[in-house]
Design a protein around this nucleic acid. Structure first.
Lengths: 216, 216
DNA sequence: AGCGCGAGGATCGTCAACAATCGCTGCCGC
DNA sequence: GCGGCAGCGATTGTTGACGATCCTCGCGCT
């Protein structure tokens, strides 16, 4: 049981940003901080390496992987397609209760935007996306997106800070939800793709204006 | 070094179909057949489990995972989107030499079709897709598609056997290559997506007419 | 005969010690 | 003073043995 536990906790720690970018992950230290056996630490590192969260060099150990901006853009492109697929499926499969739930998240999003809580907006937006992925009942897309998302933590609050982005994001989200509510698969797919293409653009421009958010 | 080697060879063996579906993978046997240490076998199994090629239950060991038809269709849907993205990027990035190479593969494909070599067609088609992914220089899409492909081995020769599919496949492939040659990103993306959506349909229909290809 | 149950074998998970490798530091020769 | 090399500490990779868990088979009871 300790093996899965160690993996989960180490993953959470990396995602929470408890380590510096490129910081070495020394097995002995992890044994202490996680309180699990060395074998468990090693399997956790293998899994995280396969997931792309850490880099593993033979005889030189593991370090947390720093995904570059170009790669983040690639990831966003892939995410856009997969989430557009999910939106399409969601438009086919959503129950009335699920549509209601999406509208509630949208209302919360509007409230947060009025209150000027940009970080809250970002979090609620993530909730909306996650919920649509669940409604789509598309295990493959869900798995791939979740894996891609975990590599993007470093950029998660980046795009919402672009001036005017939050408001546009809300209207795009609204379009997606309304297309799902109207049971219009093609419209839902197009709306979601448009939304995420805009996010990608926001990421590009935020990078151009402010090249490094994290110092070493 | 033995650890990576063991992973590669076990992966190749599973992809080659050396194991029965749902066959248990017993560590002791793998140590013998692969000639690597037990730790290496264990890490290989962890990686393969994360990759979706084997299923791992605690205290009950690993077995090769049998992907169901519904999941194969999900995988094809995701592949369609990602390869369409790759085709778009390839249309932007392809050099003249690379376009020439794609046309050569196409010619080979035509030759094989005329000769009635359907399996050869399938293989050459896979080569074409792989080459387009390389030309796109999109590491994220390439990684995801490669992972998805490895889970589809069981179905790889399934769609080409649908009557008339091979000929249609050739004309669709031609459309993709010509769009790339014309440096037309949108057309390339659309053509690739159309092609793979047709493959998905062929998979669906082949399943309906012939539900089980592999007996236990 | 059918069913519950315990013993045994098979297999996996964990641990501690050992071997191999890497990076660094300090020494030596030029 | 500087470059190269040997030795050393730190860290990872590997091995073998031990304990834990699960499945199966056979026994006894009803």
């Amino acid at each position: 049981m300790s093996s899965d536990d160690g993996y989960e906790r180490l993953r959470a720690a990396i995602l929470a940003g408890d380590f510096q970018p490129n910081e070495r992950l020394i097995e002995a230290d992890l044994i202490e901080s996680l309180g699990v056996s060395r074998a468990a630490v090693r399997t956790a590192l293998v899994r995280l390496a396969h997931e792309g969260l850490v880099e593993h060099e033979r005889n030189r150990g593991a370090k947390v992987r720093l995904v570059q901006v170009e790669e983040a853009i690639e990831i966003m492109q892939a995410r856009a397609l997969l989430e557009a697929l999910a939106a399409r499926e969601a438009a086919v499969r959503a129950s009335d209760a699920e549509v209601h739930e999406l509208r509630q998240i949208l209302a919360e999003l509007r409230r947060l935007l009025d209150a000027g809580d940009l970080v809250g907006c970002s979090t609620a937006g993530a909730t909306l996306h996650a919920r649509i992925l669940e409604i789509a009942r598309h295990a493959t897309a869900a798995r791939l997106v979740s894996s891609l998302n975990s590599q993007m933590v470093r950029f998660q609050y980046r795009t919402i800070l672009v001036p005017g982005r939050a408001a546009r994001s809300l209207s795009e989200h609204t379009a997606v939800v309304e297309a799902i509510a109207a049971r219009a698969p093609a419209a839902a797919e197009a709306a979601m793709r448009l939304h995420l293409d805009h996010v990608t653009e926001a990421l590009r421009s935020s990078v151009a204006s402010q090249p490094r958010a994290v110092a070493s």
